[in-house]
Simulated scan of single mutants.
Amino acid sequence: MHIELLKGHGSGNDFLLIDEISNNYTFSEEERANLARLLCNRETSLGADGILFVMESDHAEGRMRVFNTDGSEASMCGNGLRLVARYICELQGRTDAVIETMKADLKVSKRNEIYPDIHTYQVEISPVLFDLKALPLNLDKTDLLNEKIDELSDELRFSALAVPNPHLIALVEKEQLECGLQKQLSEKLNGPNDLCPDGVNVSFVKPLQEGVIYVRTFERGVGFTNACGTAMSASTLVTCLQGINEYESVVNVCNNGGKVQCVVHRNNGEYYIDLIGNATYLYQAAVEVDLQQKSFTMNSQIHLAEQPSYEKLQDDVQRFLAETI
């Protein structure tokens, strides 16, 4: 099986993008899952946090499907959507588009550079659901905002929401970031358990300054990543709900892979978030895949020249985090 692909990242959250619009690919559901397990393996010459399949849509400019490294399908991926937004807009000569995702059709658009020489796109994060059944999170209540979960921690308070990926978010101090608590809780909630039987993304959030937060996320199906777009969006919303940040205002969200900007919109009790950040291409590659043998060979790899600009942003963010956390 010959496949051409593009590797890129949003906030250091890296993906392999496979274009099914321009190419004659037909994958079964089993093949999609197996391709993700094989090609995203970090021990191979590729490696990534997931695969973005870019497909035709019968009513939008394109369709995105996201498969995690373990072969599971994610309902949404904000960092990945920025890459798909750029790919679709450049493919079709547009500056804005609508992308079909599993749960919703989402607006995307090209934006002014978040940092010099960095391709920047804005994507819509919605719907936002607070009903615990949407995650699901099995507690004897309908929603959870800044409350303790006795089974998890005596000290932390959690908020739960789906955007539409499920997220459990805690505002923390430096000491809680530096201990192993997040890893312990995340592995518990993403293994066999009664609280979150389908697993959940777990984020620790530290407010840094007015309009600036830091978010670290353990992603369901992946583990710790440099950044998670839906987690950063959901975390920003939680800070607005708690009066730490303002609605309709830009919040700078730092992460281990760089930074994004989020704007939370509230309308008649409903919410959606604009996620603004980089869509950086790393290289183009062609691979020959043998799924039966669970192997592939790299036929070609053409590196692109976009990463150095992003590394300057990363360096600035890391200096800022060292000074403020």
Rank of each mutant, 00 (worst) to 15 (best):
A36H: 00
A36G: 07
L38F: 03
N41S: 13
E43I: 08
S45T: 13
G47W: 02
A48F: 00
D49L: 05
G50P: 01
L52A: 01
L52F: 07
L52Q: 00
L52C: 04
F53N: 09
F53C: 10
M55H: 13
E56W: 05
D58A: 10
H59Q: 04
H59P: 05
A60K: 06
E61L: 04
G62F: 04
R63Y: 10
R63K: 15
R63M: 10
R65P: 08
R65K: 14
R65E: 14
V66S: 02
F67D: 09
D70N: 12
D70E: 07
G71M: 07
S72C: 03
A74R: 06
M76H: 01
M76S: 11
M76N: 05
C77P: 01
G78E: 08
G78M: 01
G80Y: 00
R82A: 09
A85L: 01
Y87F: 15
Y87E: 13
I88M: 07
L91C: 02
Q92R: 15
G93P: 10
R94T: 01
D96L: 07
M102N: 13
M102K: 15
A104N: 15
D105W: 06
D105A: 12
D105N: 15
D105L: 00
L106S: 08
L106C: 08
K107Y: 11
S109D: 08
K110N: 01
N112T: 13
E113L: 10
P116D: 12
P116R: 11
D117Q: 14
D117N: 15
Q122L: 12
Q122A: 11
Q122G: 11
V123R: 00
V123N: 00
V123T: 12
I125A: 03
I125K: 05
P127Y: 09
P127L: 12
V128K: 02
L129S: 11
L129A: 09
L129E: 13
L132I: 04
L132C: 05
K133M: 12
K133P: 00
L135C: 13
L135A: 14
P136A: 10
P136S: 11
P136N: 11
N138K: 14
D140Q: 14
T142V: 12
T142N: 13
L144F: 00
L145S: 03
K148V: 08
K148N: 12
D150W: 04
D150L: 13
S153D: 12
D154Q: 14
D154P: 08
D154V: 05
L156C: 06
F158S: 10
F158P: 07
F158L: 08
S159T: 15
A160N: 02
L161G: 07
L161V: 07
A162T: 09
N165A: 11
N165S: 13
P166C: 07
L171K: 13
V172D: 09
E173W: 06
E173D: 14
K174E: 14
